[in-house]
Design a protein around this nucleic acid. Sequence first.
DNA 1: CTAGTGTTGTCAAGCGTTCAACTATTCCAG
DNA 2: CTGGAATAGTTGAACGCTTGACAACACTAG
Lengths: 164, 164
Amino acid sequence: MKDPGPRWLSPDEQSTWREAIEAWQWLLAAVDAQLQRDSGMPLAYYEILVRLSEAPDHSLRMTQLAEASSSSKSRVSHAVARLEERGWVRRMDCPTDRRGQIATLTDQGFDALSAAAPGHVEQVRQVLFDALTPEQLRQLDGISAAIQAKAAASPTDAEGCPAA
Amino acid sequence: MKDPGPRWLSPDEQSTWREAIEAWQWLLAAVDAQLQRDSGMPLAYYEILVRLSEAPDHSLRMTQLAEASSSSKSRVSHAVARLEERGWVRRMDCPTDRRGQIATLTDQGFDALSAAAPGHVEQVRQVLFDALTPEQLRQLDGISAAIQAKAAASPTDAEGCPAA
DNA sequence: CTAGTGTTGTCAAGCGTTCAACTATTCCAG
DNA sequence: CTGGAATAGTTGAACGCTTGACAACACTAG
């Protein structure tokens, strides 16, 4: 074995990692739980509704919606099916590409989003913005950007890797 | 309506929030995916094995294990049942409290953990430590601590709230 | 001893996610 | 125009997680 062994984490690194992962796991769970409790939807659904509400005509192709939500087509397909059952989203055939489906936010869906938003925003304030100083928020921007740079460079989320 | 309306997020805040949530969702998913792919276990299971490996006699009461993993008893109960199926953990009756169950890491479980650790550590380095500067890592410590302070103060994870 | 109360852990049902086919359509080469 | 490859999206099964109900047990008071 020439392998010098894995580059183990130092105690400091170990602490940094554990604190960070615990903090963000908790934060994501807290935000998700609030939405689930007060509005009956998981964070993933809320994000889908937001993406649609920001799109022209409140409409997006399924694939675009999946990309915007950084999730898989299958997941979005199932999710939209459930949102459709609730009357929050409608699916239509795409006029230009007959393979395509267009998901559209209904008025009812827009109302549901509007109703959920204030509580959600308040929760985000409580767990993030009220917890951190302006200085820390600036620092967080840099950290997020650095991680996202890794994410973009990594093959982890490459669904259709073009480098084949 | 006297309500001045929710304290909406400013564009800057909105950006901070979205970047952060996206970055950490990705990071957690990337770490989980690596473990699942290379060692056939989700991050939650890995964390349980780590907690056990750090405990005296590689053993913990189920409740202690749940607290150490910051998850619910039910979740831990299910997880340990599956780990037991794989032969990584054994459950025994507690000699001093006959209600209790003690989860013990088996030798096989310790081996599985040892086999999984190097790849996991390497992945953590890639997505976190290699992405951030030493300065940013220090900043992250402060941010994590601030969020955890909120977590501790919040009733979100209070299973048995003593303030009743 | 017996009843009441709180704790410990498990079990069953329902929901959401992922993975692996599968259908339908478009694109492109010959 | 035809056949094959790529693309768009859906579907069903298996899996893990969460919730609420529940059984077993410990502790305390009468």
